[in-house]
Design a protein around this nucleic acid. Sequence first.
DNA 1: CTTGACCTTGGAGCAACTACAGGGTGTGTA
DNA 2: TACACACCCTGTAGTTGCTCCAAGGTCAAG
Lengths: 162, 162
Amino acid sequence: MKSAMRIGELGQSTGVDIETIRYYEKTGLLKNPERSSNGYRAYGPEHLERLSFIRHCRALDMPLADIKRLLEFVENPAADCGGIDQLISTQLSRVRARLKSMRALEQQLTALRNSCDTNHSASECGILHELVAAAQGETCACHRNAPSATTPDPPSDKRHKE
Amino acid sequence: MKSAMRIGELGQSTGVDIETIRYYEKTGLLKNPERSSNGYRAYGPEHLERLSFIRHCRALDMPLADIKRLLEFVENPAADCGGIDQLISTQLSRVRARLKSMRALEQQLTALRNSCDTNHSASECGILHELVAAAQGETCACHRNAPSATTPDPPSDKRHKE
DNA sequence: CTTGACCTTGGAGCAACTACAGGGTGTGTA
DNA sequence: TACACACCCTGTAGTTGCTCCAAGGTCAAG
């Protein structure tokens, strides 16, 4: 019982901001650590492991709620793992869908950027013209060059549901 | 002056949620429309055009702040357009960077998913083993198969700065 | 005995919406 | 005329995953 780390050390060894660690604790992802006499958080190796696990999952872009579920499986190894597979597959489709629209997006932006070559006034700027035309539904360079999708997908910042 | 639309119509014809329209107004992206005697918002064709412009830019995943700047160029066509080019280029690099890490991510998830084949208990689940191993820094299928990046990039939900 | 690095809590703020409560308006129909 | 119902209004709070801040406690070195 000498390996107890304080939050700063844990942050250092995992590369995680201490505010983020406290946030994980607050939201129940990371277990409440012991406290030393002065009230400081005292972490053991199990916390380091768990935090690394969380970060690895986050690097896979999984939502915290999913990570929480995975952690439950880790805690409870007797449970049926069907859910895990499901969870990863869902994440994979999310990523693939996003990837697809990102590719279209890149094409469009590239086309757009190519329509502005030199310094001139905004009224002569190809980019601006393209954007305005696009808004009016006319063919624009970005749509001409785009693979198939007319508009990749309406902003889709709704990863937090569905 | 009979083409005035109410918010519902504008939403319908652009495919934008009315809450979102009001949000755009509140944050200054969309100009305050006239109000009819009953206090309802009365939009003209210029609003429709502007809103379409915004949505097209959002479909290109541009942050609202950037769109605001673009709109200023639209309003003020005499300005030098150097900034526009810059803006699009920045957006393009953002997208490309994200694309790159998403590709690595897809690889990793694919590898992960392949390590779970049938129904069994969590303690025997390949996915879970891989994840735990990965967290411990050991080689795991996802890292073995990944192209170059060990970890694609720490969550990087910090697009709102840098 | 003060400086400085570290730790504590609670709360606010970021993007870009989304949802809701609690109310007003306006049209169609019984 | 009464009522339902679709639409509109405002304002506020919630979402995700952090990030930052203020105001203060702890502890070792100089």
